[in-house]
Design a protein around this nucleic acid. Sequence first.
RNA 1: GGAGGAUUCGCAUAGUGGCCUAGUGCGCCCGCCUGCUAAGCGGGUUUCGGGUGAUACCCGAUCAUGGGUUCAAAUCCCAUAUCCUCCGCCA
Length: 418
Amino acid sequence: MIDLRALREDPDAYRASQRKRGASPDSVDALLSADADHRSALQSFETLRAEQKGLGKQIAKASPDEKQGLLARTKTLAEEVKTAESRVTATAAAFEAAGRALPNLVAGEAPAGGEDDFIVLREVGETTVPENVRDHLEIGTALGLIDTERGAKTSGARFYYLTGDGAMLQLAMLNLAIQQAVATGFTPMIPPVLVRPDAMEGTGFLGEHSDEIYYLERDELYLVGTSEVPLASYHSGENLGDLSEPRRYAAWSSCFRREAGSYGKDTKGILRVHQFDKIEMFSFCRPEDAEAEHRKLLSYEEQMLKKMELPYRVIDVAAGDLGTSAARKFDTEAWVPSQGRYRELTSTSNCTTFQARRLNIKYRDEQGRNAVAATLNGTLATTRWLVSILENHQQPDGSVAVPKALQPFLGKEVIEPK
RNA sequence: GGAGGAUUCGCAUAGUGGCCUAGUGCGCCCGCCUGCUAAGCGGGUUUCGGGUGAUACCCGAUCAUGGGUUCAAAUCCCAUAUCCUCCGCCA
């Protein structure tokens, strides 16, 4: 949800933001007129209601004779109040719908354009394609780390088992990520992954992503596609005090995605699956600190990538490819030798006050007034990372070298063929 | 699955149709008093929206949520949600 006062003050900024996303600025004007309708309906209702309350007080004190006269007038007034109120309800619904239709104001620095208009901020590490390169599925199958056939037998396409050292490798990576997060001031969390409609709605996932979400109809619960949902919802409806320090959480969770509309895309291996595990960082902070916090989340992601000894690049995602809630987004993409290109491993978004406004998350500002907080999220590790780890660390003899940082968890330096 | 109870300001509670402009206590904020501290005294303190740019003032909404009855609802009626207790079933 957009800041309406800011919108009224400077609608052009929002029109420009829409154009930058490649979306129509008409939705800005639709919201403005819905807002005006709603406010005028509110005002006429409030005037009538004030009159009704005043008369009610007179009646309470009036003598029986006077009462009769007053009652005649209040009866018609009651009708007027009722119609005015229903007009308020109707305009409010239209206004809310228009409000939901407008995505967050894009940050000034974010590049304009669509999916392909990102800017590469930096490339780190050397990308190589080994001779006789094998993809992660070949490696994983040969070493007994990944079993997609039995995954399909049990659950269908895009499901898999991680087995033996494959399971250990993932646990090692997730543990390392949590450890790093705790060391940098995050509170570790294991959140619920089944959530109610209002939690899903509040984080904005029921809009553009609704096809992606598993829904348990009998129980009216959604399976989360990311722990961003339960983490954002954690403080919903709360006032977080002065927020002089950001509140940071890092959650481990399984994530579930239907991958509707991705038929034929990345069908091999574990690059795109219905269920995976993830460590997600989430920050609540003052709006003025959000940009610096965003940089921090990005730097934590890069730290993890370096610990995994992966070549990667950082991109500044273009406006048209931002989510509804994001004002700016940085992705990191790791090198995948078998494909000869970079693939997204992490994504960090600055949602400014957009998400928190919907979830009603406040803090107390310098003047002691309640104000809307900012929220940010970022990925610290996911199952997909295994793709890049296995492929970049494959060795000519068929083994895979374990990154140094994971060796203590795994108890070995190399995963050897059996 | 079944039966009961609960939901009121940050917390605890009072409140059975107009006296609610929601009381009280705790907490918190401001002040007074006082060698210091504690205590005591006085004042303030739900949240959201609008007038409106404004910390003042005025208006409206807000007693879990949504409907209804009424000139008038925290209060009466209906539905729903959540929490708690108990029973049953299951791991």
